[in-house]
Design a protein around this nucleic acid. Sequence first.
DNA 1: ACGTGCGGGACGCCCCGTTCAT
DNA 2: ATGAACGGGGCGTCCCGCACGT
Lengths: 193, 193, 193, 193
Amino acid sequence: VPRPSMKSAIVEAGRDEFHGLGYTATGVAAITSRARVPKGSFYNHFDSKEDLALEVLRLYVMEQRLDILTSAELAPLDRVREHFSLVARQLGQSEPINGCMFANFAAEISDETPRLRASVVEGYAYWARLLADNLREAAGPGSEFDAGGLASALIDAYEGAAVRARASNSREPVEVFLTRTLPLLLAAVPQPS
Amino acid sequence: VPRPSMKSAIVEAGRDEFHGLGYTATGVAAITSRARVPKGSFYNHFDSKEDLALEVLRLYVMEQRLDILTSAELAPLDRVREHFSLVARQLGQSEPINGCMFANFAAEISDETPRLRASVVEGYAYWARLLADNLREAAGPGSEFDAGGLASALIDAYEGAAVRARASNSREPVEVFLTRTLPLLLAAVPQPS
Amino acid sequence: VPRPSMKSAIVEAGRDEFHGLGYTATGVAAITSRARVPKGSFYNHFDSKEDLALEVLRLYVMEQRLDILTSAELAPLDRVREHFSLVARQLGQSEPINGCMFANFAAEISDETPRLRASVVEGYAYWARLLADNLREAAGPGSEFDAGGLASALIDAYEGAAVRARASNSREPVEVFLTRTLPLLLAAVPQPS
Amino acid sequence: VPRPSMKSAIVEAGRDEFHGLGYTATGVAAITSRARVPKGSFYNHFDSKEDLALEVLRLYVMEQRLDILTSAELAPLDRVREHFSLVARQLGQSEPINGCMFANFAAEISDETPRLRASVVEGYAYWARLLADNLREAAGPGSEFDAGGLASALIDAYEGAAVRARASNSREPVEVFLTRTLPLLLAAVPQPS
DNA sequence: ACGTGCGGGACGCCCCGTTCAT
DNA sequence: ATGAACGGGGCGTCCCGCACGT
């Protein structure tokens, strides 16, 4: 069986088109065409283009190396470093550089797509929670420390690098994030004595 | 002198629509409707929607408080702090929060709009240059210091906060940036003894 | 009985509109309106207005009484006479007189519509070939005779009458062609002794 | 002053654009652009695009070598031969071949442009009258002979060759007309004994 | 009972021929 | 004499629903 199912083909095609062109600029026809699926068949699997985007975002979260943030084999801060190192390198590998799908969606979101907005916000929250847990663990018990704020700061810095990399189609922002921003921010984690 | 030009009305309407809905999702009809001009008048002033966006971006740069970055009355680092404080506060004032236009465009850019991409990249470069000049001046002569890298880091962090604020329609990312990220990054500027 | 497709309605409406107003002056909206189909349905069946015109031309060829040119019951020259008699009479029957679709398209053709040009040229060549075959057969074997040239001359004379009839909305050019030009040109066919 | 006046520049530009693209496909903007004339200035000189076309047609008649048809130095039939020889050669010289403007307009004409139709019909009638006069003179007094019919036949044959030449962008129809059709038709003129 | 070709109308960006006010 | 206003329309595409065919 060459294709497991038509639905997954649509999801993959939608993911790639959304990533490259953006949500609004991507048409349903472009998705079904890329997926080699009959045009009218789209709405058997998804109620709307927005529903497909929701599914795409859900899978995108699972593809990010969030599992590393709970790895038992690494120290908390090493998990964070390794996680960002992997996703940032991955960000700069595609040609052209399409940025982070969360940032791209976040920039396109408006009141027209409330479920998309909710999904993005939830994704950010989930990501921030995982990061904050590690930061808090690294700081050790008893230390007064806004782990949530620092987690958000890390995400923001990464997302900003992602959009700038997309716009310039350059890996330079990725390098800046990894060598400059990430170490500076992680240095703010109080070390247990 | 012919009739009073409606060009400025078109530009303002375009700026607001682009900021709120995004470049792709904004139709020319929505722009002319908001500007209260007939549809056909649009193309007397702009050859295409992309050309209007270029003009909107050009004006957006001029509206950002970049002048503060060359203020003679402030110390270099204070200029940077004041600049980001103003633009970040401004970012969080609109209702809903529409983010930074540069980040929004950056996330929508693809090979379909090469002139838009060039304009965004140029805008980032100009901004980074102004920031780097101040950081270098603050570090003092003779100090080994990658001012350009730190300037890019500052921009990335701000832009990431902007997109997250837009997605969540929340001022929290702005606060995180001002209270967390900005001080941490500026602390990396070496102080002249 | 298959579901009544709207494609044929579109083709017929396109044929009539093209014939009456010309290719450029006919809008897709006018076609769909005459065919009583929604606008978006047009592009389910044709990729462009030019593609519809190609189909219309194809069918137009089939509607011309070219079959008479291969009739087994007539002598070669009688086939030619009968063919032109039928198409010329048909030309003058519509109200108003819309001319020959080939001539009309030929006059509108430019580099903007290369496929249309190719189709018209091919149609002329096909027509000329059928005519030349009859002329050659009428001349008998062994006679030195430019059948192709005379076939083109016949076509040209007919097409000229068609455009003049269209312009003047008069049947007079048709009569001139049938009573004057056609006999004179056919008299040039050498008779086998 | 490089240009005698703006009006003549508009007329020349209109003539060339109409000839190349056709009346409907030619926009007023294309005309003023080619004429290097301000766009809004068009309607100072012409009440409408149709009025410009009327003027273009009027001048087109004057540019055809109709004067030869009244030349005192040639025999009547030689005048006709020379006239068609000149206009046909001229027809095949431009690159691409744009056909005869009369035929092109005739094919585009509909009830939407009644004045254009009247002008084309009048032009044909004038042309036919000049030709018929020569044919009648060549036939000599007292001969029963439909000079008007033959003149129309000549025009039709020429016009048909013109449209076919335009469509195919080939000089072959011109040659066919000159070497085939024209001699055959002129042979029908009765010679005075 | 499912999967899809086609229907369906609103809308995309852009340009039309024309008139107005300066 | 002209640059802009003006509204309607150009062709093509949007996202989506329906009803038929297997």
